[in-house]
C-alpha cells in the first residue's frame, strides 16, 4: 500500500514530485491544530513548514506515523519528547538552507548599515538633501558577533571574514569552542554583546534560548550597534527590542522572524524606528527551497523504507541540537 504523506503547506515542486512517485500526498486545509489532527489517523509521514505545530495530541492520534520532516531547520514546533515516545523519527534540513539564510543576514546587515530603505525613499521623493545624513557606515574593519555557531552562523562568519574584512566573535550556548570553524574568536555572550558593532542571532528556539536577547542584553550592546535575528522570533524579547530601538539603546534591527507570524498590526516592533522587517523569507530563495524540498522528501522516503535518515534530529535526551 502506498504510504500517505501529509504536507502542512505546499512545498517546492521538485520535492513534491519526488514524494508523489512513491506516496499519496495530501495537503492540509490549513495549519490549524484541528486541521492537521483531521489527517492524523491516516498518515505515515508529515512534512511541516515553519507555521503550525505537531504536539503530543497529534502523535497520540497517529498510530501509523513513522517520520516527521521539518521543511527547515528549527524543530521548536515539534514535540520531540512525544515523537521519541511514539517511535517517530524527526528529520530536518540542517545545512541545506544555510547559504540562503547567511546571505539574507548579510543583506540585512548591509541594508541597515546603509539605511537603504531611507535612501530609496529619498531618491523617489527627490530629497537630495538627505544625502549627507544617509551615508551610513562601512562594515570593513567592524566587529560582528555571531550568537550560535551552527552551519548558518559559520556561513555568516565565513562571508564576514573572507569577504568583508570584519572581525568575528562568536558565542554558542550549546557547543564548546572548536577549532573546526573559520578564524573567529569564541567569547562569552556578555563580551560578544559589549564588543560587537553587529550582533546576529543563529540559535534554535529551546527553553534555554527563549528571550536569550532581552532588555539586559540589549543594554550591554553598543549604542551604534545593529541586531539581526533570522532564527526564531522568541529568541529575542521583541517588546524589549522595540523599547531599545525607540530610546536609542541600539541603532537598528533587522528581523526575519517574529514572536507571532505574521505579527499583529499593533505589535510594538512594527512601529519601532530603524527596523528592516522581512516575512520569514531568509531561507526561501529558489535554490534553497529546491534543496530543502528535495532533501526533506528524500529523507522522509528513506525512513518510510526503513533506511537511516541523512538529517535525523537527535532525540531530546542529547543536548547540543544544531541551529
Amino acid at each position: 500500500m502506498r504510504p500517505v504523506v501529509l504536507l502542512s503547506e505546499p512545498i517546492h515542486p521538485d520535492g513534491h514530485r519526488l514524494l508523489e512517485q512513491r506516496a499519496t500526498v495530501t495537503l492540509a486545509a490549513s495549519v490549524d491544530p484541528a486541521s492537521l489532527l483531521e489527517h492524523a489517523e491516516q498518515v505515515d509521514a508529515v512534512i511541516l513548514r515553519a507555521r503550525g505545530r505537531l504536539d503530543r495530541a497529534f502523535f497520540r492520534r497517529a498510530p501509523r506515523l513513522k517520520v516527521v520532516g521539518r521543511y527547515g531547520v528549527g524543530v521548536d514546533n515539534v514535540d520531540l519528547d512525544a515523537a521519541a515516545e511514539h517511535g517517530v523519527t524527526v528529520v530536518n534540513t540542517a545545512g541545506l538552507n544555510a547559504q540562503s539564510v547567511a546571505e539574507h543576514t548579510i543583506a540585512m546587515m548591509f541594508a541597515l548599515a546603509r539605511r537603504l530603505h531611507r535612501q530609496d525613499r529619498a531618491v523617489r521623493e527627490r530629497d537630495w538633501s538627505a544625502r549627507d545624513a544617509l551615508g551610513g557606515s562601512e562594515l570593513a574593519g567592524a566587529t560582528v558577533g555571531v550568537i550560535g555557531f551552527g552551519s548558518i552562523g559559520r556561513a555568516v562568519a565565513a562571508i564576514c571574514l573572507r569577504g568583508l574584512g570584519m572581525r568575528v566573535l562568536y558565542h554558542d550556548p550549546f557547543r564548546a569552542a572548536g577549532a573546526d570553524g573559520p578564524a573567529a574568536s569564541p567569547v562569552s555572550l556578555d563580551d560578544l554583546l559589549r564588543h560587537s558593532d553587529v550582533v546576529s542571532v543563529h540559535v534554535p528556539l529551546t527553553p534555554q534560548t527563549r528571550h536569550l536577547v532581552g532588555a539586559a542584553q540589549l543594554r550591554a550592546m553598543r549604542r551604534h550597534a545593529l541586531l539581526i535575528n533570522v532564527s526564531r522570533g522568541a529568541v529575542v524579547d521583541e517588546d524589549a527590542l522595540a523599547a531599545a530601538l525607540a530610546d536609542g539603546t541600539i541603532a537598528g534591527a533587522g528581523l526575519d522572524v517574529f514572536a507571532q507570524e505574521p505579527p499583529e498590526p499593533s505589535t510594538p516592533i512594527l512601529s519601532a524606528p530603524n527596523t528592516l522587517l522581512t516575512p520569514h523569507s531568509a531561507a526561501l530563495t529558489e535554490q534553497a527551497a529546491r534543496r530543502v524540498s528535495v532533501g526533506v522528501a528524500t529523507d522522509v522516503l528513506a525512513v518510510l523504507d526503513g533506511l537511516p535518515a541523512v538529517r535525523a534530529v537527535p532525540k531530546p535526551t542529547t543536548t547540543g541540537r544544531a541551529a
Partner: peptide
Amino acid sequence: VRAGLPPPDCWGTTLA
C-alpha cells in the same frame, strides 16, 4: 510585513 501580507512561496535567489 508592515502590510500584514503573507510571504510568497519563494523569494529571490542565492548568490553562491
